[in-house]
Design a protein around this nucleic acid. Structure first.
Length: 574
DNA sequence: GCCGTTTTCGGCCCGACTGTTTTCAGTCG
């Protein structure tokens, strides 16, 4: 049973929590957190690295001692340091740390003075009003903790990017309309285009007497004002989304935008570079002693530490700073570079529109080609096509292409089910009539890692296999990816000339950012496809492009940036 | 516990806001 990167990161985080609560050297706890961060952002499996005898100390923030601990964890499933900590402190104190308003000091006080060991204990202590009697606590603190505890139940902690976008853009539009507002940006993980967003960070510059802060905290969608000040306020909207507004002087806009865009790890790394140069970098600018030497734009901030501009999607401290220093940052793929969509549905299966409507919608977006990929017979719930209906669909596409001229080319395709034994869900005679095949798994999601991997490898052996659709099968926040050895799949794809999909559906975004990066490292190109079930869904393309950009992909790495001619060539199996 | 153009010790990002105090600790991002 191999341990996943996320589990390793979680154990290290838990150890960090307990170290902080226990007091002692706070920097030691931070070292555990930083190691956890490095590992959760890694594309390769740490377990595999250890198995290969790779040197983990080459990874950032992992030294000799941490590498040994991780190796032990991978090999034995145990982290002895964590077990030792658990002997002195209850492990569940780590959960209390997750509650907003509770940090190590307060958790320690709750434990030592009130014997609170877990969330249930905390609830009882709050109800008995014993918390307010602790030194440093008070009535207000007790109430805040109680509120956060109550809200925690059954709440989705992160919002998918698309939903966050709807909320953010509406609010931003209202704030832009306030008197005296000059610049406004939505920063944070939203600007980095992370697949999910925890809260929104909005940044404004405004003339001195602008009522923007008051209009923010007084907005009709506000459910709760968490804090309010001259330059910073935090609210919770009725949707449950927490939003920060920061008001900055114009001369500091770039520095503030950089600061609030994050990620935290990226900022810390940049600030460290500043320190080495005798500079202090904060949200108000870059300072040498008391003098501000940069801050109006982000470019200035980067230039002050000798770096070129780094795109927000790359700011995760996953090697972008080193790449910037070496001048080897990728030229990220742009939405404009996409020449067609290789995965969409019509009414023939579970789509909502006609073939012609989808083709027209593709042409409106300036696409050169659009692949129609209705489901196949195995997926009965979606009205999948059998042999006869598939043949009819192919003939219909031929006739449609005759009427479309050079406006757009509709490619004959299907989203073919990969059956449990790895065979494809339509006879070869039909598959051969298709321009390409997107092949996906829709059932038997709970096979073992070995069997699921084997299933896909076998499917890829089929000469008609072109693209592996939504390769991990995850639904963000709803369903975990199925067990799969992605590296083995990528190696097989590279060998056979197959591609993997970046499914741009906001609830899928599958491959993930780190998966994209792994694909690139292993020499496998991707198709960014919307899996559209309606014309409007074709606009999901930008979410897929953002995900690919977060995975460091350039236009070369993406098959559907090619002209139709070049695409056809690429689709020919070696 | 990590790290090194101040390098094997002695640093480790930094400011805003809140609540409990009355000058500051704790938390957050």
């Amino acid at each position: 049973m191999t341990i996943h990167n996320q589990e390793i990161a979680d154990r290290l985080e838990r150890a960090a929590d307990l170290l902080e609560i226990g007091g002692g050297n706070a920097y030691r706890a931070r070292a555990y957190r930083q190691a956890a961060q490095t590992i959760s952002g890694l594309s390769q499996s740490v377990a595999d690295l250890v198995a290969n005898g790779d040197d983990l100390t080459e990874l950032p923030d992992i030294g000799q001692r941490m590498a040994e601990k991780i190796a032990t964890l991978v090999e034995t499933g145990e982290l002895p340091q964590l077990d030792e900590l658990k002997e002195t402190l209850p492990a569940q104190l780590s959960e209390l740390m997750q509650l907003s308003g509770l940090g190590p000091k307060r958790v320690k006080a709750l434990y030592q003075d009130l014997g609170v060991e877990n969330l249930d204990d905390l609830k009882q202590a709050l109800e008995a009003h014993r918390v307010r009697e602790l030194e440093g606590f008070g009535r207000k603190t007790e109430e805040t903790i109680a509120e956060h505890l109550a809200r925690r139940q059954g709440q989705e902690p992160r919002t998918r990017l698309m939903e966050a976008e709807e909320i953010a853009q509406a609010l931003a539009a209202d704030l832009r309309a306030v008197d005296g507002v000059q610049d406004l940006a939505i920063a944070g993980s939203f600007r980095r285009r992370k697949e999910t967003v925890g809260d929104l960070d909005i940044l404004v510059t405004a003339v001195e007497d602008s009522p923007v802060m008051a209009r923010f905290t007084g907005h009709e969608e506000v459910r709760e004002i968490v804090s309010q000040g001259e330059t910073r306020s935090t609210i919770v909207l009725r949707s449950g989304m927490q939003v920060d507004l920061r008001r900055m002087p114009e001369a500091a806009y770039g520095a503030a935008l950089h600061y609030f865009t994050g990620s935290k790890a990226h900022n810390i790394a940049v600030r460290r570079m500043g320190m080495e140069r005798g500079l202090k970098i904060n949200e108000y600018g870059v300072f040498r002693d008391e003098e501000r030497i940069a801050g109006r734009s982000e470019q200035e901030v980067y230039a002050s530490v000798g770096l070129p501009y780094i795109e927000p999607v790359l700011r995760e401290n996953r090697g972008e700073i080193e790449a910037a220093q070496e001048g080897s940052l990728p030229e990220l793929v742009e939405l404009d570079a996409i020449r067609g969509d290789l995965h969409c549905h019509t009414r023939a299966s579970d789509g909502h529109e006609s073939l012609r409507a989808m083709a027209e919608a593709g042409a409106e977006r300036g696409y050169q080609y659009l692949a129609i990929t209705d489901h196949t017979q195995n997926l009965t719930v979606a009205g999948g096509l059998d042999e006869r209906r598939m043949n009819e669909q192919i003939d219909r596409i031929d006739r449609l292409n005759d009427t479309l001229g050079d406006r757009i080319r509709v490619l004959k395709s299907a989203e073919v089910d990969i059956l449990a034994d790895g065979s494809l869900d339509l006879p070869d005679a039909i598959l051969e009539r298709l321009d390409l095949c997107v092949c996906s798994i829709h059932d038997k999601l709970d096979l073992s890692r070995e069997k699921q991997t084997e299933r896909i490898l076998r499917a890829m052996d089929h000469p008609s296999f072109s693209i592996l659709g939504h390769p991990r099968g995850r639904l963000i926040g709803k369903r975990d990816p199925y067990e799969l050895d992605l590296e083995q799949v990528l190696a097989a794809a590279a060998e056979r000339g197959c591609f993997l999909e970046v499914n741009a559906q906001p609830k899928r975004l599958d491959l993930s950012d780190t998966d994209c990066r792994l694909a690139k490292e292993m020499g496998v190109k991707v198709a960014i496809s919307t899996d559209a079930h309606s014309r409007a869904n074709l606009d999901y393309m930008r979410f897929g492009v953002d995900q690919a950009r977060r995975g460091w992909l350039d236009a070369e790495d993406v098959v559907n940036t090619r002209s139709l001619e070049a695409l056809r060539k690429l689709l020919e199996r070696p």
